[in-house]
Design a protein around this nucleic acid. Structure first.
Lengths: 341, 341
DNA sequence: AACAATGATGTTAGCGGTAACATATCCGCA
DNA sequence: TGCGGATATGTTACCGCTAACATCATTGTT
């Protein structure tokens, strides 16, 4: 019997179970959801019947009737950047303790894709939305405002939230890094990052960074941008290129830890004194870094806390509780071994 | 106006749009789904009305009425191991070209959790299921058999599939690695891996590996297991431990590339000649490796191909097309710089 | 001019559950 | 013995949409 040809067997319904158990559909529904009073005897009968038939409830019908959906839409730009799977992991951990369930949508950093994904998700009437960033199309913002469910914008903090917001001020992160670098006496600073204009968080970090340098009368001396490919390799290559071109640089700021790690490996392999000759710093606190020969200076993006708190906000609101609508996390600079102090 | 107190405004329905546009609900439904004949004039009217009101269709009701759901359940053990986000990325890429949408569930390698997640997902009546591995609880297998939707089990190939299967024979991967190692003259072999008994793929690789060694009359001389923590760090630590304990080892086989990379970094930092004194090999082909000073010998897990093909199978079947129910991918050993040849 | 074929729209009856209300059934206690 | 109040179960009316069929113009054909 070829499974590809199996005639579409009718799915089991409450009615099937109710007939098998000899009770009404409503009673079956009650048993299966643990709602209302049902005698132990019928409960048992029903559970047996359901198991025997292999009944799987139809949440679609249930959701339509009850006007309740236990899904939480989580919208992230990418799965390739470990930051987002890590946020997801924390969200899952929290929601696992509740009846809620995350549903992930990926936007590839494209606003139109984000709008489409959001529309798709909202059309399933989720109990909440967790979405990365504060920059959305006007239509997307309108949808979220009208959706009448809790919305939590995460990661970033610089901008106007629609509803709740949990994150790190990216500008501030950039600024603090710049201040620390200046304080340690570095003056000839190079920057490396992606050339993704739509990665607003990276952009804001750079803005904060530049701004703080400016206040000290310093400006970035040289920079390199990349797109695609292995970040570690790119970091290595860009570092080589920038140091060849501007050998007098005494500090390299990377927009993320992965390219920073590549740069670090390059320096180590080429006997460049870090942090004596050049200092290095990245952003994120990826777990990977712990395994490197030297600890890269970085600043945690707090993604686990962010995921956890965002999920808690949704869960609390789903229970009608009130919560803080703005949670600012303030990661501390970790000097590691690549930034003098 | 506190958004937490907004009275639950009634959601817009087709009826609202139909009244706004002055046509029947059915016509609105037709326009919004691009089905059936509708005159350009009404089409325009309806679209304008929908946009003006900010109407978001209710897929729950739609799905219930049409008995069609454009969701594909994807069930993976973890988001922390980059392998799975990468598979997800490929799946998304393929499904983006179709009306289908992936929905992710995470099991944390726990069979009971997998069963629960599967139940939850099937209760939304998805158009297909993509699930990692071949080992499931009996109840989970029964659910999938009864679900009457295409099921694709991915990653692994050693076992009985429920329906379709796409993957790499993990036993064979382990065996081929062992054969290559033996062929290059290595004899005193150490192994490092997780002690997760439920990571069946790692287990099978080790089985294949051991078996091939046995055929050559060799057995693993020493081994180390870890759990939790940064894989890179663990790889470093385990390598140090195993080499101190068994200094005569001439080859180290790691159950994944991340710990392998840690081991490689340890060897490099300690001036251990690789692959002269000891050879190293891992498994997976994580992108990260490209950035290391030396290329670790490895074998690609083909996760991008796997994701792509699995998604294509679901998409094809959703269109009633028939497809291969068994796709075996045969990754080739990449010698890199850590395995003599 | 009569009529089939076609195109454009409307009407009706569910899809499979659940909320809300109605109806037994049983018990203790005055 | 009868009655109020739990406790246990059933009945009814939707939830918001779409399949299937019905209706009504419009057009070309002979």
């Amino acid at each position: 019997m070829d499974p590809q040809h199996t005639p579409p067997k009718r799915m089991l319904t409450l009615r099937d179970v109710s007939e098998e158990a000899g009770v009404s559909e409503m009673t079956v529904s009650r048993v299966l959801r643990n709602r209302g009073d049902v005698s132990d005897a019928t409960r048992l009968k029903v559970n047996e019947a359901a198991k025997k038939l292999g009944y799987v409830p139809n949440k679609i019908a249930g959701a339509l009737a009850s006007q309740r959906v236990n899904l939480v839409a989580v919208i992230i730009p990418s799965m390739s950047n470990m930051v987002f799977p890590e946020v997801m992991t924390s969200i899952s951990e929290v929601l696992d303790e509740t009846p809620l369930q995350p549903v992930i949508g990926v936007t590839n950093y494209q606003p139109e894709k984000e709008e489409a994904v959001l529309f798709e998700m909202l059309s399933w009437r989720p109990s909440g939305v967790i979405i990365a960033g504060l920059e959305h199309t006007e239509a997307a913002r309108a949808m979220m405002r009208n959706a009448d469910v809790p919305i939590v914008e995460i990661m970033d903090l610089d901008g106007d939230p629609i509803d709740a917001i949990v994150g790190v001020s990216q500008r501030r992160a950039g600024r603090e890094m710049a201040e620390a670098i200046i304080a340690q006496g570095y003056r000839k600073i190079g920057f490396m990052g992606t050339n993704m204009p739509l990665d607003h968080r990276a952009r804001k970090r750079l803005e904060g960074f530049t701004e703080a340098l400016q206040k000290a009368g310093i400006k970035i001396q040289d920079q390199e941008f990349y797109s695609g490919g292995s970040a570690l390799v790119k970091g290595r290559e860009m570092t080589e290129a920038i140091l060849k071109r501007s050998p007098d640089l005494d500090f390299l700021y990377y927009s993320n830890d992965m390219i920073g790690a590549g740069g670090l490996l390059y320096c180590l392999a080429n006997g460049i004194d870090v942090p004596g000759k050049v200092g290095l710093a990245g952003f994120n606190g990826v777990e990977l870094l712990d395994g490197l020969p030297k600890q890269l200076a970085t600043m945690d993006a707090e993604r686990h806390k962010i995921g956890r708190i965002a999920a808690e906000i949704i869960a609390a609101r789903a229970n009608g509780q009130e919560v803080d609508l703005r949670v600012e996390l303030k990661p501390r600079l970790q000097f590691g071994d690549t930034l003098k102090r």
